[in-house]
Amino acid sequence: MSEAAPIPITSDLLAEAEQGASLWKDAWLRLRRNRLAVFGGIVIIIMTLFCLIGPWASPYSYEQQDLGLYASAPGARHWFGTDKLGRDQLTRIMYGGRISLSVGICATLVSLTIGVLYGAIGGYVGGKLDIAMMRIVDILYALPFTIFVILLMVFTRELASQFNLGAEWTLYVMFGAIGAVEWLTMARIVRGQVQSLRKQEFIEAAHALGLRKRRIILRHMIPNVLGPVAVYTTLTIPAVMLLEAFLSFLGLGVQPPLSSWGTLIKDGAELMEEFPWLLMFPAAFFSLTLFSLNFLGDGLRDALDVRASKD
């Protein structure tokens, strides 16, 4: 039995304690020590700023043509050269990045919302509902998804042209379509997490303390699921961007005159032998972003796993 005299609680003691490191701050410190993740994070920030602010600094617009130039090589006036319609490649990469990044973020948000809700309900309620919900996921898993998305895109394109909807409509549909196929894994992850959490003693202890269900879910369940969800989210963004590029490459994604990195790569690939810079630059930007996102996701996973790193 410790007989230590109680420490008087003074307000400056509390103030000092108040500044202690939070769990997220701890994770942040650990993340900062991971060089690859820091590199990834910085690249993503620069890339985002480049795509958002760049177009204002550029003297060209993405659809402005200078047919006389044809596909000119990189030079002083057009740093990354021009495409075969004489449009400035650098500007088109900036605009393409906007679309690629926003597809990545929006479609991931869609999949995040569906996946977390679906998984949490299944895991928390359990029983027959859970079994039914998970069998649905299994069935959807078994469908070839690319084909599903392609069908969806073709179908909505028909609709859009019939009702004279703008090109940005295909974009919205793409957010939804990609999000709708990417949520399955998220649902499984969250469901598994919630299910194992439900049996944890600290959840039982929380019940024994007289906490209400809502408080248990909000204060005890969600923070425990957040780590894996955050990690999987950062890893979903590149997957989604890749899917968008693939669709655009097939000519089903973003429609001209809009461009995404995927369409730029597609256009470049067609002229690869004569004008390699048309493929090289967008492909380099795209892979650099994907690498960075993956590095950041991996770093985040290591940083957020409190138990693995400290216990």
Binding site: E201, E204, A205, A208, L209, G210, L211, H220, V306
Partner: peptide
């Protein structure tokens, strides 16, 4: 529960929210 009757569990390693 938790106010007038409370409980201590067997395994302290898992009864606290990490």
């Amino acid at each position: 529960r938790g106010k007038r009757i409370s409980m201590v569990f067997q395994d302290p390693m898992t009864s606290l929210n990490p």
